[in-house]
Write a protein that binds this DNA or RNA. Structure first.
Lengths: 181, 181
DNA sequence: ATCTTCATGTAATAAGTTACATGATTAA
DNA sequence: TTAATCATGTAACTTATTACATGAAGAT
């Protein structure tokens, strides 16, 4: 038996709470784990099929009027696989891809105002992310405590990044002022 | 002309400072941008070929004894492409994949000691990353100020994550103690 | 009427890792 | 002599995104 991708396990984790359609799973992801584990339809639907073939979820046709609809629920085997993953101590994926930071890293060849633009773009990005996280705060509060704690972690991360950007902006402007004297 | 991947641009950025072999580029990445932009040989060598075909780098055979060796230097077109990217204001990639956090998010079905194990594993991971960043601190200081500032950003991020983990551990243990009374 | 949301799916493509193969040079 | 480092590369695979196609139901 092939081992599951973390994305498949995320689906199992969401289905642990309640049965959902692929569409609902996508919406749930976007309202919860998206900021540290995104997933697209192009992954979710094939992944659900694989999970069904592996017997970890059960698919049930449940049309709403003339609109076809498939609800997935987790099976006992699925619950076991979820638990096995959660309690497995082996190494977990941790990856960061930050192109704005990459630009900042190479900023030595830029003029101060161009560097400033790089940092401001990065700050804006984090501010948008922060706003997106704040927008789902109420939903997270209603879910269990772990969802809310996870969200607060994300909020803190974005705030750290924003504060760092502000520091860099300040230092850059101070440096530019000094050169002008 | 096809647009470049951020990884290709990272190579250009590194070559801006000085010419390097593919092997040296990999080593440079591992000692600088790796924590927010990793790259493997499987990407670097083909990418260098593409950059050469596009005329953005120039390859020169420069064997050391009987060991073949190809040094890449950035061309004027390459410098222009680098600059264009650095000053381009359009959206940049920002992605986080944190499987440990995913586990934490789903921890409601775990027993307190199992949840504790999840957080501790996450903390250990960040502590290792922090140590890796601290180990390259001297190199970053010797490079330009942006490299060092970028590193400090990474260090701060890891410290934030570690502090958060410690908070969660404390809260969990406090909660467990309360239940026992 | 028409726009949004609900709903499912695939094909093409992109981006990247892992494992492997090969072989020279240098340090212990 | 043996291990580490320098050096280059590819094939197979994995993971994921984007764009597209399709169509029903509900809201305005």
């Amino acid at each position: 038996m092939e081992s599951l991708t973390p994305t498949a396990r995320a689906l199992l984790g969401l289905l642990h709470n309640r049965a959902r359609t692929g569409y609902e799973l996508k919406a749930s992801i976007d309202k919860s784990v998206r900021f540290f584990w995104a997933a697209s339809y192009g992954q979710i639907y094939p992944e659900l099929k694989r999970l069904e073939e592996a017997g970890l979820v059960r698919a049930t046709d449940d049309p709403r009027g003339g609109r076809r609809r498939t609800v997935y629920e987790i099976t006992a085997d699925g619950e076991a696989a979820l638990r096995a993953w959660l309690t497995d101590e082996s190494a977990t994926t941790f990856e960061l891809r930050d192109e704005a930071l990459l630009k900042f890293f190479f900023a030595s060849s830029l003029k101060p105002d161009e560097t400033l633009a790089v940092i401001r773009a990065k700050r804006r990005q984090h501010e948008e992310r922060l706003a997106a996280l704040r927008a789902i705060e109420d939903d997270a509060k209603e879910a269990d405590g772990f969802a809310y704690r996870t969200l607060k972690y994300g909020i803190g991360l974005q705030e750290y990044a924003i504060a760092w950007c502000r520091d860099q902006e300040r230092e850059l402007q101070a440096g530019a002022a000094e050169t002008q004297r």
